[in-house]
């Protein structure tokens, strides 16, 4: 009788202990996961934002005066006042680092090219969380659109270098350190979100009159079947005098 009572009590203690352990383990698992919840990366306003409200279409400066053939500056009303042509372009020199103080970005920069399908390669391996420069594009400060890119998120749900890029606003400053020791300073003119399936190639990669910068990352809805975001967030910027 006594031994039966003892074993029942022992069993009861065991069950209580097991249940308490389950509670503790489950609780800490939930707490761990809860501490690792990440917000959605910020997206620019739906219509995009432009510094120049009178420009239409809202893109960076596209007036195209060339030294040989003077072209009428009235061609694109509104965009001529802030034209990058007033800034002296810099000689070619590879970018080595980039800073976007407004969103706390400070990253080394490495060069990347195109893959076999002509698509821009993206940072990988040890440099996954660093900014890359498309080495087929002009160096930042040269005439033309210099192209920088970086990841918005990493594997394991971790935010990457350009997680906050969608929070960039016109007027924000972007500084690019170059191999020759100089720094090219740019000012954001427009922040846009565009579906990858309808990527504005001409606006982003097309010819420009002055030295400009394009900073690209991912955004929008994440397509779990392909493992990619459906949109790109694109920041347009122009070289400014220091």
């Amino acid at each position: 009788m006594n031994s039966g009572k003892d074993s029942a009590r022992r069993r009861h203690t065991l069950v209580v202990a097991a249940c308490a352990a389950l509670l503790a383990v489950g609780g800490s698992a939930v707490a761990w996961a809860a501490s690792r919840q990440v917000e959605e990366p910020p997206a620019p306003p739906a219509a995009g934002v432009t510094a120049d409200v009178t420009a239409e279409p809202p893109t960076a400066q596209r007036a195209t005066p060339q030294p040989s053939t003077p072209r009428p500056s009235t061609r694109q009303p509104g965009s001529s006042t802030r034209d990058a042509s007033g800034v002296t372009p810099l000689p070619a020199s590879r970018p080595v680092a980039v800073r976007i103080p407004g969103i706390g970005v400070d990253s080394p920069v490495h060069g990347l090219g195109l893959d076999d399908e002509g698509r821009l390669r993206v940072p990988s391996g040890a440099r996954y969380n660093q900014v890359a420069w498309y080495d087929g594009s002009p160096t930042p400060g040269e005439v033309g659109p210099a192209v920088l890119e970086g990841h918005v998120t990493g594997s394991g749900y971790a935010p990457s270098v350009f997680f906050e890029l969608g929070n960039t606003r016109p007027g924000d400053r972007i500084e690019v350190d170059r191999a020759d020791g100089s720094t090219a300073a740019f000012e954001v003119t427009e922040v846009r979100s565009a579906p990858k399936t309808d990527f504005p190639r001409v606006d982003v990669y097309g010819a420009t009159t002055g030295p400009e910068l394009r900073v690209i990352t991912c955004g929008g809805t994440f397509d779990t079947s392909t493992g990619h975001h459906l949109d790109n967030v694109i920041v347009f910027a122009s070289l400014v005098r220091d």
Binding site: V38, E39, E40, P41, L114, E117, G118, R119, L120, V122, P123, Y128, Y134, G136, V147, E149, G150, H151, V152, T153, G154, S155, G156, Y157, A158, P159, S160, F162, A194, K196, F199, R201, Y205, I216, T217, C218, G219, F222, T224, G227, H228, H229, N232
Partner: peptide, 12 residues
């Protein structure tokens, strides 16, 4: 380059 860039890692 062709199209956009694949600079996303995971959905958050």
């Amino acid at each position: 380059p062709e199209g956009g860039v694949e600079t996303g890692g995971a959905d958050t």
